[in-house]
């Protein structure tokens, strides 16, 4: 399984903090985005935002990054700390 977590505005838009998906359905972060976009209109809208950032196991990655079972994948908006 791959654990997926959402933060900040993204978490609120999706009304979801985390979910799990089977690792054999996806190869890359882009595949996960595609899979989640298929859920419904709101998810499609959220995941078509090009400013969305992703991380795998706490490292920022691009959409081509490979994923495997046991990974934690995070999606969030551009950061605004400091």
């Amino acid at each position: 399984m791959i654990n997926i977590v959402f933060f900040a505005a993204l978490r609120e838009q999706l009304d979801c903090e985390q979910l799990s998906i089977s690792a054999d359905k996806v190869k890359t972060v882009a595949d996960i985005k595609q899979l989640l976009s298929d859920k419904n209109e709101q998810w499609l809208k959220t995941f078509s935002n090009s400013s969305l950032l992703s991380a795998v196991n706490h490292d920022m990655v691009n959409s081509e990054h490979l994923v495997k079972s046991g990974d934690e994948v995070a999606f969030f908006p551009p950061v605004t700390g400091g």
């Binding site: 995070a74 950061v79 700390g81 400091g82």
Partner: peptide
């Protein structure tokens, strides 16, 4: 400080 602003995952 500059890198914290753009890469540390905090949201206000």
């Amino acid at each position: 400080m500059d890198y914290l602003k753009v890469s540390a995952p905090f949201w206000k």
